[in-house]
């Protein structure tokens, strides 16, 4: 913090800031704090015959969360999300960087292209991928027509299909923050690196990447976290064969009628992220000092 002289009006300014923030605070309270509170309470409850929550204290749900089965599922979800994130960085970085280096008019056109998929329902887009990847789909048709393969590739309902679906769904969330970081990157810095004898590769590694790191980090967070909990893609493109943590939680609410256990999974899941995020932040603060 830079030392600032506190004027007598700063208290009033503070009050005004809080007033301006009020709508957001109410929103946060109503849609984040309250639901999280409900989830927390439920997670210590039991269920009745019908599946209604009974407010009798129990540790049982948390004991079940740490069952090896659920830990393995959690580990698998993290692994899928990690692979997705890595591919998204590799594919999204050049795109975001390229767009940021265009003229303003061209930039807006390209950004629009990145965002156009959002205009269509997510499910419709996922079904479109099924049309592409299925046995007698577009991809196999093309590969067979060009004689690159003789028998159709088995892609649908495999882990590869899940990864394709996840990368497709989350790539824009990687491109956009990287774009916004790259757009702020002063081109003179890149030129300075060249000027000092750094070729394209070293300039990229030593100047461009560190300076666009905030965008990469934001993109990684935006991709990694939701990818762990994603269940629609694993169902539709993975054939629901291997359970992911998102499917397991969803099942507690919609199939097993076991809300308290679902809530416990949700709470642990959320805590895990809060803690890892806090650690990440602390490390960054420490690095900056």
């Amino acid at each position: 913090m830079r030392p600032t002289s506190r004027s007598f009006s700063s208290r009033r300014a503070g009050l005004r800031a809080w007033l301006l923030l009020l709508p957001m605070l109410v929103w946060l309270a109503a849609f984040v704090v309250v639901p999280m509170g409900i989830l927390l309470v439920y997670s210590f409850c039991q269920r009745d015959d019908l599946g209604r929550v009974v407010f009798v204290f129990s540790w049982e749900n948390y004991a079940r969360v740490f069952d090896p089965t659920y830990l393995a599922i959690f580990g698998r979800s993290v692994a899928y999300a990690a692979v997705t994130t890595v591919i998204c960085v590799a594919a999204g970085y050049p795109v975001g960087y390229y767009i940021a280096r265009r003229s303003e008019k061209r930039r807006n056109q390209l950004l629009l292209l990145v965002m156009i998929p959002f205009w269509t329902s997510f499910l419709v887009r996922t079904y479109a991928w099924i049309t592409i990847l299925k046995n007698d789909g577009l991809l196999n048709g093309m590969l067979q027509y060009t004689k690159l393969i003789s028998a159709p590739l088995d892609i649908m309902y495999t882990p590869a299909a899940v990864i394709i679906g996840l990368v497709y769904a989350y790539l824009p969330f990687m491109i956009l923050p990287i774009y916004s970081s790259a757009e702020k990157l002063d081109n003179a810095l890149v030129e300075a690196a060249y000027d000092l004898g750094a070729g394209p590769v070293r300039s990229f590694a030593e100047v461009i990447v560190p300076l666009t790191w905030p965008g990469i980090a934001a993109g990684m967070l935006l991709v990694f976290v939701p990818a762990i909990g994603m269940f629609a893609i694993t169902d539709l493109m993975g054939g629901a064969r291997v359970p992911m943590i998102g499917n397991v939680i969803q099942n507690q609410f919609f199939q097993a009628r076991n809300w308290p256990f679902g809530a416990a999974l949700g709470v642990v899941f959320t805590l895990l992220f809060a803690v890892s995020y806090a650690l990440l932040q602390r490390r960054r603060v420490w690095e900056e000092e």
Binding site: L189, A192, Y194, L196, G197, A198, L211
Partner: peptide, 20 residues
């Protein structure tokens, strides 16, 4: 010849110091 192959160095208008 690309800039990184030239034995020439420049002081930029905005200095272009690497902030990181």
């Amino acid at each position: 010849l690309p800039p990184y192959r030239r034995n020439v160095n420049q002081v930029f208008q905005s200095y272009a110091l690497f902030p990181h």
